[in-house]
Each structure stands twice: as structure tokens, then as C-alpha cells.
Design a protein around this nucleic acid. Structure first.
Length: 587
RNA sequence: CGGGGCGUAGCGCAGCCUGGUAGCGCACCUGCCUUGGGCGCAGGGGGUCGUAGGUUCAAAUCCUAUCGCCCCGACCA
């Protein structure tokens, strides 16, 4: 039996000054965690108990679809070199040397190790499909660890990898994970959304993120209350209200207009008496790269958008497959022959495709596709152009969805108003495709004895993010409450006065019986005043409290539900039935 | 990496401007008292003032460097 008086549960009255978000404050105050360094935390008794319960759920569900491995955290450089990520990951990868001077790194994810096992061992289509997973620490040298356990440098991750003979097989493995993830997060008692996501630098096609809404989160999620549409901002779209085009002026050819000193979209629209949505916003960006010879070369990326739309950088990065930065004044003048404020698409020899070629890229947001008689800068100080029609007066390298969705716009599925929330990502599944089997040379023989590349999927769950999200999801001024399935204890039994023998014995008896019935119980047998015990019980995340007080003489105790603070008097003789109802049936 | 803030006892803070040998609350220890929401009284222990160097008779305090932590941004499989 767990007796509080013998346990190390260092609760604090005050949160550390450097904690900002609720989960950080409370996990420290409740004695779950202590910080060792930026983004590195120790889990104490309560934290570790909760952690292990989460892991057990993840393991039970993953065992239904896959096989658990345990892979090294310490990796040789070679396998990362082979996948191309020794370079790609840059400073994010923790690197070190062994005594012989050989380069090593700490695993930030395990595609390389899993694939290297697969490539040595998998020979035949008969061995596929495979789903291999592990639950193990991951290391990422984050430029800015933050918000307690939300973004840390060492964390526990369940990572799984699937190998299939063909895309149809991958669809099956993907779906299995999708369903398994739902079961895991349901069992963990989280309220979450599944959103369409950008697959990021990992490549691949289909991708879903499992998100929990909380102001502490780092991701922006667009969702619809009217239907099941939900997507990451990086991917979200909306049904835009149509904008009336201006009538052509004069002969309909591009028309130079004098706009002295009018540099901003608003200035120009007001000056010309039109809506900002008939004005083109021209964004001058630059993509830096190094060529084979190691020489730096930059390629201009110019983006055109509706006047009052905002660019979503993740969408842009996905479209051009590289990071971009704003152009410097000198670069603007070199390309446009004009100062900023009067930029436009005319008079520049744009590339005809994004890939290859050194010519500047003109990307036009889809919201401008099919529009006519727009207004843009004339690439001449104090002048703009009217009557500009994309495809007629200038030719975009490509059209792409680049605009950031804003709250209140119409859902692309059902048309209701979209909402935008911040959320924390607790899981991510995506179809990797052939990236690693390609780069690392994974091949098996198919039915016809022909060598084929298996297709892979990759699936991750952040263990501490489940805990963090649960705390963010259930807390108040006094502390937090975890779903019973992941709480360190389900019930705390609090005798109001341990010096009162009747009370003490009754509490002891109740705790024993509940424990015998299979509940995780802690008996707060400390010789403390009731207030101290109640405050601690409220703080530490245990979903139920049994208060054993004077009413024991009448055969009654109080059962308090932490989340609602609902109190009910329960006959001691009926205590097991009560929790049967409260915990077992509630799941 | 750019911008900002902070390092003084386990936690929260004051002292620094104007240099004079470190203080408050909570926590902790002992005793008494109390027992349905962090009780009361009395006594007590604990600090290289992040680190290094400098100025000075004297540095938590002034100067320089450095390390660490937090926040905003950039970044984020």
C-alpha cells in the first residue's frame, strides 16, 4: 500500500518564476517533474507513474498491430549519411565523437535504424507487411526549448514504421495506425482532433496530426464546428467569397497610373477608389542555396496575392521546396529596377517552371487565378498599373495555394464559419513513400522475382505531450486532474485526523479494500491538518478523493470528484460498488 | 541566431541606483498546541549573492568577460 507519509511527493505552494504555461507550473508544483537543464527534465515518483501508465496504454494498443523493438539512441554517422539527413538535420541533431574520433549522433527519430535493419533482413514480399515500433527517448537540439514539457530536447516517443510491398498495402498500415491512435488517445481520456497536415521535410503524401486544443500549443489549427473538417494552418483552405473584378479601363491594355507616394496596399486602394482585393500584393523573397561547387546562389521568389491576404510561409516553403527570406533593398532594385512599394509582375522574364532554371519564380496565389483587371505596382517609383490580368498580361511560373486562412471564412466542405485555435500535436502519422527505401537501398523480391522498393510509413506519438495536454485540458486555480487511466493514482484516501484511531483505521481499511479490488490508491496518512491534505490532493492530479472524517461513526465517508468538485456521501460498505460505477464503467 | 528579461537559502522575493561584511515570507528541524481547506506560539538550522577577473581600505552592490535560465521572434522530423 502506498502511504503518502513514506513517499517523495515534493509539492510546492508557489510555481517557479520561470514557468508560464499551466502544465509546466502544475507539473512542477505537484512534484511530477524537476528541471535539469533547458529542455531536459527529471520525472519524479508521481510523474513517472503517470508516464508509465501512458506508455502501457500505448504499448497495449500498438501490440495489436505491430511488434515492439528497442533500438539504440546512439547512432553511427554512416546511416545518417546514407539517408542524407546527416546534412539535412543541421544543428538539430546532437552530434558527438567516440574515443576513436568517429562521428556519432543521438537519434532524433529512427527511420535510419529501422530501415537499416529492414534492408539487411527483408528479402521477400512474403515477409511484408511489417509494422515495427519502439518506445524510447529521442534527442533534438531544439533552438528554443520551451513551456515545460511541451518542447524539450530529450523526450520519449513511440515511433513506428511500416513496410509494405505497394501503396495499397501502405494504405492498410496507415489506416491501422489511424485507428490505433484514436484508441490510444481515447483511452488516455483526451479531447483531440485529427487534422490534415503538411508532411513537412519528411516528404510523402498523406499525413494526419492528432491535436489537442490548448492556448499553450504551438500549432494553429483550422476547424469547422459544422462538419468534421480540420486542418493545420499549413494545409488549410477555405471557400472564398467571390470578389467583383473591376471593369477594364480604356483599351483594356495595362494602364500606367500616377500614384505619388502611395506605397501601401491601403493607400493605393483608397487613392484609386477600389477595394484592396482588386489590388495585387507583391512579395519579394529570396531562396538561398548552395550549388554543387559549394557556391552560394540565390533565386528570387516573387509571390502575388490578393491585397488583404496574408502569406502562409509553410505553404510557400512546401510550394518551392525550400526556405525563403525577404529580399534586401539592393536585391529588390536589381530585379524590379524599382524601389519597394511599387513592385509588380510586368517587365520581368519569369521562369516557366519552379524546378531547374535560374530565372526568377513568379508564384501567384490561387485566389488570383481567373481574376481580371487587377492593380499592381508598375516597377516605377510613384506609378501603378491597372487592367492587369494574370495569364494575359503576365505569365506566372505557377499558381499555388499560399494564403493563410483566417477565422470566420467559409469551410471548404460545408460552408460554415471556420475557427482557428492553437493546439498541441500529440501524434503524427504519415506516408513516407519511398524516401528511405530509395536512399538507403531497401529492396525485396516480388512474386515475379523482380526487385522492388518497399513503401514505408512513419508514425509518432509524443509521450510527455499526452501528459502535458491532459494537464492543460483539466486544471483550475488549485491544480489539475488527470483522466483516471493516466493518473499516478486513481484515488487518494484522506483521513482528516490520523490521531483519531477510528478515522485512521477506517481510512486504512478502505484503502486496503480498494487496492485489493485493483484500484491504484494512495493513503494520505500524514499527520497534517486537513487543509494541507486537501490542498495537496487538489493539486496533484488524482481524479478522486475519499475524505474520511467524523462521519465514519455513522459508517459514511465522502467521495469527491476532483474535476467537478462534486461531493457525495457514501456508505463505507458500498465503497467498492461506488468506484465500480465511477471508474470502471466510466472507463 | 536576432530582440528582451532574470540569476541572492528548497520555492517566491527584497537589498544593488547611493559600496561598509546578507534579509523577508513559505518550506525545513525541535518542543508545545491544534485537527473539515496550506492553524497558532516559542526556539533553531541552512546562502561560494551563477562563475572568473578588475576597481576599492572594503563589492551582492561599480566595471569587464563568461556561463546558465526564461520570454518574443526565426526555427521546429
Amino acid at each position: 500500500m502506498h502511504r503518502w507519509s513514506e513517499l517523495f511527493i515534493p509539492t510546492l505552494r508557489e510555481a517557479p518564476a520561470d514557468a508560464e504555461v499551466a502544465s509546466h507550473k502544475f507539473l512542477v508544483r505537484a512534484g511530477y517533474i524537476r528541471q535539469l537543464a533547458a529542455g531536459i527534465y527529471s520525472y519524479l515518483f508521481l510523474g513517472n507513474r503517470s508516464f508509465n501508465k501512458i506508455i502501457r496504454i500505448v504499448r497495449e494498443e500498438m501490440d495489436r498491430i505491430g511488434q515492439e523493438f528497442f533500438l539504440p539512441a546512439l547512432h553511427p554517422r554512416e546511416i545518417w549519411e546514407a539517408s542524407g539527413r546527416w546534412q539535412l538535420m543541421g544543428e538539430h541533431l546532437f552530434r558527438l565523437k567516440d574515443r576513436k574520433g568517429a562521428d556519432m549522433c543521438l537519434g532524433m527519430t529512427e527511420e535510419e535504424v529501422m530501415t537499416s535493419i529492414a534492408l539487411k533482413e527483408l528479402r521477400s514480399y512474403k515477409q511484408l507487411p511489417q509494422i515495427w515500433y519502439q518506445i524510447a527517448p529521442k534527442f533534438r537540439d531544439e533552438p528554443r526549448p520551451k513551456s515545460g514539457l511541451l518542447r524539450i530536447r530529450q523526450f520519449m516517443m513511440k515511433d513506428a514504421y511500416s513496410f509494405d510491398i505497394d501503396p495499397a498495402g501502405l494504405d492498410v498500415s496507415y489506416k491501422k495506425h489511424y485507428e490505433t491512435y484514436r484508441r490510444i488517445f481515447d483511452r488516455c481520456g483526451l479531447k483531440y482532433m485529427v487534422v490534415e497536415a503538411d508532411s513537412g521535410a519528411m516528404g510523402g503524401k498523406e499525413s494526419h496530426e492528432f491535436m489537442v486544443r490548448t492556448p499553450a500549443g504551438e500549432d494553429q489549427i483550422v476547424s469547422c464546428d459544422g462538419c468534421d473538417y480540420a486542418a493545420n494552418m499549413e494545409k488549410a483552405t477555405s471557400k472564398l467569397a467571390p470578389v467583383a473584378d473591376l471593369p477594364p479601363e480604356g483599351d483594356g491594355q495595362p494602364l500606367l497610373v500616377h500614384t505619388p507616394g502611395m506605397k501601401t496596399i491601403d493607400d493605393v486602394a483608397k487613392f484609386l477608389g477600389t477595394s484592396t482585393n482588386n489590388k495585387i500584393k507583391t512579395l519579394a523573397l529570396m531562396a538561398d542555396a548552395t550549388d554543387e561547387a559549394g557556391k552560394k546562389k540565390s533565386r528570387p521568389i516573387v509571390v502575388l496575392m490578393r491585397g488583404n491576404d496574408q502569406l502562409n510561409e509553410a505553404k510557400l516553403n512546401a510550394a518551392v521546396v525550400t526556405a525563403t527570406r525577404a529580399m534586401e533593398e539592393s536585391e529588390i532594385r536589381a530585379l524590379f529596377k524599382s524601389p519597394a512599394g511599387f513592385l509588380g509582375p510586368l517587365g520581368i522574364d519569369w521562369a516557366t517552371e519552379i524546378k531547374n532554371g535560374d530565372k526568377p519564380v513568379l508564384l501567384v496565389d490561387k485566389a488570383l487565378e481567373g481574376r481580371a483587371n487587377l492593380i499592381a505596382g508598375a516597377n516605377k517609383e510613384d506609378y501603378h498599373q491597372k487592367n492587369l490580368t494574370p495569364g494575359k498580361d503576365f505569365h506566372p511560373t505557377a499558381y499555388a495555394d499560399l494564403r493563410a486562412v483566417t477565422a470566420g471564412e467559409a469551410c471548404p466542405k460545408c460552408g460554415k464559419a471556420l475557427r482557428i485555435d492553437t493546439a498541441v500535436e500529440i501524434g503524427h502519422i504519415f506516408k513516407l513513400g519511398y524516401r528511405y527505401s530509395e536512399s538507403m537501398g531497401l529492396r525485396v523480391l516480388d512474386k515475379n522475382g523482380k526487385e522492388v522498393k518497399p513503401i514505408m510509413g512513419s508514425y509518432g506519438i509524443g509521450i510527455e505531450r499526452i501528459l502535458t495536454a491532459a494537464v492543460e485540458q483539466g486544471n483550475d486555480a488549485d491544480g489539475f486532474w488527470l483522466p483516471a487511466a493516466i493518473a499516478p493514482f486513481e484515488i487518494v484516501v484522506a483521513p482528516v485526523n490520523v490521531k483519531d484511531e477510528t478515522v485512521r483505521a477506517a481510512a486504512e481499511d478502505i484503502a486496503k479494500r480498494l487496492e485489493a479490488a485493483g484500484y491504484d490508491v494512495v493513503l494520505d496518512d500524514r499527520d497534517e491538518r486537513p487543509g494541507v491534505k486537501f490542498k495537496d490532493a487538489d493539486l496533484v492530479g488524482i481524479p478522486f478523493r475519499i475524505t474520511v472524517g467524523k462521519k465514519v461513526t455513522e459508517g459514511t465517508v465522502e467521495v469527491v470528484q476532483r474535476s467537478t468538485r462534486e461531493v457525495r456521501d457514501v456508505r463505507i460498505s458500498a465503497i467498492l460498488e461506488t468506484f465500480e460505477e465511477l471508474l470502471r464503467r466510466a472507463g
